[in-house]
Nucleic acid binder design. Structure first.
Lengths: 156, 156
DNA sequence: TATTGTTATACTCTATAACTATA
DNA sequence: TATAGTTATAGAGTATAACAATA
């Protein structure tokens, strides 16, 4: 029972800074996600790529990276791994010989099925403390914060 | 004016996953913070350490790391940098010759003054799309989500 | 024996420059 | 001249094991 006797320090205004509160909540939610998806061998980014390809079959690699906010050079290794594991493939694009049309394999579609079930359970856990109205309010406020900071210069 | 002609893909259920929405909002808020604090030479973690030492002068290094959720080995380099820049120091602790009592230098306190002004302006920017009640609601919901995921086993 | 701070290390994520092959 | 994909690389952030000094 011997507790480490760790003194709890005063965090001052930190918990009232939006960035800090967001970071703490995000870390907690991601920890649940990572633990839940570890048996499937999927990290959050890998899951989002499989999902995106399933919804947009044949999409270009650069469009996929752009949609998920992943830089193209970093997306290459991600796709390499999914392809090596037989979950997705780079098919040749019809019109442009430079680009790849991304597709799920049958194995990838099958894994994504399990992932969809896991994500439903995960989502139920991380929103367990919120009723439907509160959850909807939280998403609304998060989207508004993000949108208000996006491209303050709309002329570009 | 020639736009890059980037196709906008369907993100499917991703925006309705709490972890994804949190991550997007957190990245946007941190981008504002990082840009605002770049002139002061402070990253988010460095600012939080200076703030914590100011509020808890003489605190132990391990307590500071624990309070901020930073692992002790990683905190060492953080403190090394702040000490090398003359912003904070490791004073010898009175009762325990193993531990350090963390303190701000005058220079560190002075920089923290500017940082407090910068953080006030930053906070006003990132909450500009929310009224007082909405901001308070957002903090409440974030804290509740985090707390509901913390230590599901309270016996440890 | 356990704790404080430290070193060494490794893995993930992120970011930029430069290359190739196509357009 | 520009784009799609790639390589190489570098920097943060984060994680664990093991050590010396001290309790």
């Amino acid at each position: 029972m011997k507790r480490p006797t760790r003194a709890k320090l005063d965090l001052g205004p930190l918990p009232h800074l939006l960035g800090y509160a967001l970071r703490r909540a995000q870390i907690a939610v991601f920890a649940d996600f990572i633990a839940a998806f570890e048996p499937l061998g999927l990290r959050p980014a890998q899951f989002s790529v499989l999902l995106l390809i399933d919804i947009n079959p044949g999409c270009k690699q650069s469009d996929a990276a752009d949609a998920l906010g992943i830089m193209q050079p970093n997306f290459v290794a991600l796709m390499d791994d999914l392809e090596r594991r037989g979950l997705a493939r780079r098919a040749p694009a019809q019109t442009d010989r430079r680009s790849h049309a991304l597709e799920l394999t049958d194995k990838g579609a099958q894994l994504l099925g399990k992932a969809r079930a896991a994500v439903t359970a995960h989502e139920a856990r991380v929103t367990q403390s919120l009723d439907a109205e509160e959850a909807s309010q939280l998403f609304e406020l998060l989207a508004r914060v993000e949108r208000s900071l996006q491209a303050p210069d709309s002329d570009s």
